[in-house]
Nucleic acid binder design. Structure first.
Lengths: 347, 347
DNA sequence: TTGAAAGCGTTACCAA
DNA sequence: TTGGTAACGCTTTCAA
């Protein structure tokens, strides 16, 4: 029974409640208790097995030592989705090191009742959803606690720090790789759902700029769940020989479709994924993919959030919003190769 | 700014704070507000963008709509550890459906400061750590909120419900499988860490009983990180031709060791894992493994916990502690085969 | 150095 | 049907 309150301890020790509080909280402020008395209080507290009520403490002191993590919870935490392990590996060590608790709140994650961001339970929010509707943006804007966004393009919400992969550089890397292999017409493939997200739009734009800059033909293809006739629609109709996909998962689906339709990868079509997850090692052929430092991004975002929380107590001049862009890499595996034309030239 | 309090709303609407509370909380109890007034209050609340302070509400009503999840956080959430996705898939849907928040608290998960179970922040605790030290057991015993244990043998803490795989039946399944294949000397392999856990001990005992019941020679081997000479120590010295491992991970390590030492699996040695994770499909040979319904176990444990929380408000006669045993299966893949002797007999 | 009192924002209880 | 008042358990401020 942790029913013992600070009052019980105070009575048992023959002191006031505040003396107990001061002793147990490391007496910040100008209240001081003599060492002897302090030790006695500690002893009594231990004997009564006193545990401070975290709720009452938070209510009064206006800090909960808890942050909320918001992510896109469309489906299960799957075996082939390396994102969630990376996310948690990025967040938890940083949080735990500082004694912070992580909360997964259905109101924020599922109900979209984003106004409850500031309902007092959290000191800050790590917003890792790539889809922003206007309600969410408004909630983030008007939050009374610090919010940090991950996977959000710079400046998505003025004044709110954003941590994001450098999609422009990433796409340039991938398009350049395909161009070097002799591909002249390249497509960007994205699912309907992802296409609607901020990151979907950002990568699409990045792809288009990269294509123009590098002078290759480009095409954006939004893949709903319909059948896709790779040979007819891509190869023949549009002369596309290289495809950059929004995600590894999507690239995996494309590989399967190619297998079904007897389109050879990479002989006839080169395929690039996004994330460079362990999944890439298990496909046949192994998937060339853009790598994104999710864990580092999330880890730094978490650290930044904790800093903002610390500072929010102090009187500091308002800071400008900052965004952080993370370099991506390209892990070349087996799914990309010289285009047919190029091979002819070499021969 | 969600600084608007219930008082502000009450003033603006010209009513008392409790009227507002009654209206917004669905007026349980005997307090009633006329429909007209109720609608007006709702309107004012909406206009002022009032959000109830969850902390204050919890403090007063003594329920936080939050449960804590405790698990073993030895290392990273890895790609080859299917446990965590299964854990979260089991817990979150059940919790979210009932509007409960899940908290990961460093005090409980890392610091071992288990007394803070009852610090007011949680309505209940889902205890999924397989290692129980005396301090933890004492903390669970003296908790003021409901606790449910997963991976704990029945009756680990009197009165606390335990959800666990039926290790006895599982081991019987595996030993029987190996016996049918003609193996006469079987070992149970477990790492030092796992051996110290409650589940480690339970499986060891289960293995020993199964071996005796089925009349096969048995040996328990605790594998620290030392080199293990499979041929000398297992095959020659002890005549062991079949090994049941504590986990798939450990079985994977054994497979690698066998590869290094040129011991053929399954020709010379049959290997069985535990968990039947997707990992088993990726080893060479594919790993025969005992399957444990983690997701269902955890899901049911969560439901049970929520029920206990609901009931804890009511005056019910104290219930006896219950334990739930879950059937395991054996997924036979490629790492187990007829023993040499048996093959000779057949030929 | 100490203690008393006033909140924090809410809900429960009791009188009207 | 209403509304005041008293908690919930703690910390902070102010006066001694």
């Amino acid at each position: 029974m942790s029913r013992t309150t600070i009052k019980d301890v105070a009575e048992a020790a023959g002191v006031s409640a505040m003396a107990v509080s001061a002793v147990l909280n490391g007496t910040k402020g100008n209240v001081k208790v003599s060492p002897v008395k302090a030790e006695f209080i500690r002893k009594v507290a231990r004997e009564l097995n006193y545990r401070p009520n975290h709720l009452a403490r938070s209510l009064r002191s206006r800090q909960t030592k808890t942050i909320a993590l918001v992510f896109q919870h469309l489906d299960r935490f799957g075996e082939d989705r390396p994102y969630f392990p990376q996310l948690f590996n990025g967040v938890l060590p940083v949080l735990f090191e500082s004694g912070y608790t992580m909360a997964l709140c259905p109101k924020l994650i599922e109900d979209g009742d984003t106004r409850s961001i500031s309902d007092g339970r959290f000191d800050g929010v790590l917003w890792c959803r790539p889809d922003f509707d206007e309600a969410s943006l408004e909630a983030i804007r008007s939050a009374t606690i610090p919010v940090v966004m991950v996977h959000a393009p710079a400046g998505s919400v003025p004044g709110v720090p954003a941590f994001c992969a450098d999609n422009d550089a990433a796409m340039k890397l991938a398009v350049s790789h395909l161009k070097d292999l002799g591909h002249e017409n390249i497509a960007f493939l994205v699912s309907t759902i992802d296409h609607a997200t901020a990151e979907g739009k950002a990568r699409r734009k990045a792809f288009e700029s990269a294509s123009i800059d590098l002078g290759v033909g480009s095409e954006v293809m939004v893949w709903s769940n319909d059948a896709l006739d790779v040979r007819a629609e891509l190869l023949e109709e549009r002369g596309i020989t290289g495809v950059i996909c929004f995600s590894d998962t999507l690239a995996g689906q494309l590989l399967e479709t190619c297998l079904d339709q007897e389109v050879a990868v990479p002989a006839e079509l080169s395929v690039v994924g996004f994330d460079s997850s362990p999944f890439c090692e298990r496909t046949r052929p192994k998937l060339t993919s853009i790598s994104q430092p999710v864990e580092e991004m999330v880890g730094m975002a978490t650290k930044h959030l904790l800093n903002l929380i610390r500072e929010s107590g102090e009187e500091t001049s308002p800071k400008p919003g900052i965004s952080f862009l993370f370099d991506c890499g390209l892990d070349v595996r087996e799914s990309t190769a010289l285009s047919k034309t190029q091979r002819r030239v070499i021969i």
